[in-house]
Simulated assay, not measured.
Amino acid sequence: MSREVRRAAVGELGAALRDLVDAAVRTEVSLDELAAATDAARSLAARLRAETRGLHDVAAVDDPSTGERWYSPVYGPGNPVAPPMVATDSPDGRATGRVTLGKPHEGPPGLVHGGVVATMLDHVLARALRAAGRGGLTATLTVTYRRPVQLGVPLLATAEMGTTDGRRTTATARLVAEDDPTTTLAEAEGLFVALRPERAADVFAPTGRDVGAWTTRSGDD
């Protein structure tokens, strides 16, 4: 089976499970219906656990060399807790993410949880760097919340790479509603540090894979 065929199947399951998660956090059915749904969910979980990978194993649908994760909690098509964000990037160090968030990502009533906002901004920041060929892990992330972020509103997150100093690279990001792009809802500044090859080999050793998206070349400071 090709990776693309499996990705299509994983995406279909992810979409169905996201619908289930949304229904689960919005339902007001009777206790009997809740009990029946619980039994069905446990049965489905047992079915999916018939063949699983370990905590450190890389999924067959992933591409760790480019950083594409199909079970990412931000954009992964196969992850039922992901919105999922539709992300794009360009080699000049820019990235965008489009997403509409619902009840599963609610904080205060009717509003997106602040931690979810930070997670989305962190992702587009890192994606902008990777698009420009700069690997790295988040070292610091500073988020400024300007306005409440409403559920059910199409959102646009944009990021741009800043300065580079050896293994360290900065980037900035901004979140707006697509129908009101001049009003900033939240913004972020991030510092990312690329791992030296020998350090990356140690950090990612449990995966058994050469994970190049978070590393830098030998000899870089």
Rank of each mutant, 00 (worst) to 15 (best):
T164A: 07
A139E: 09
L121A: 08
T215L: 11
G166C: 03
A177D: 01
A59S: 09
T52V: 15
P91K: 14
V5E: 15
V143N: 14
R3S: 05
D19N: 13
A95Q: 05
T66I: 13
R146E: 15
P108A: 14
A24K: 08
R94Y: 01
W214Q: 00
A16S: 15
E189N: 09
A23R: 09
E187F: 04
A128I: 04
A132C: 10
S218N: 15
A24R: 13
A131K: 00
H123S: 07
A128P: 02
G190I: 03
R217W: 10
D89K: 03
R98F: 02
D179Y: 04
S65K: 14
S65E: 15
L101T: 05
P83E: 00
E178H: 09
R130Y: 11
A131Y: 01
L31T: 11
G136N: 08
A194Q: 00
H56N: 12
E198L: 12
G208Q: 11
D32H: 06
A46T: 13
P197F: 00
G114S: 01
A36T: 09
L151Y: 05
D19E: 13
A23C: 09
T96S: 13
R209T: 06
R3I: 11
P91W: 02
T184Q: 01
G93V: 00
V58M: 10
V99C: 04
D62P: 03
V112G: 04
A131C: 02
L34M: 11
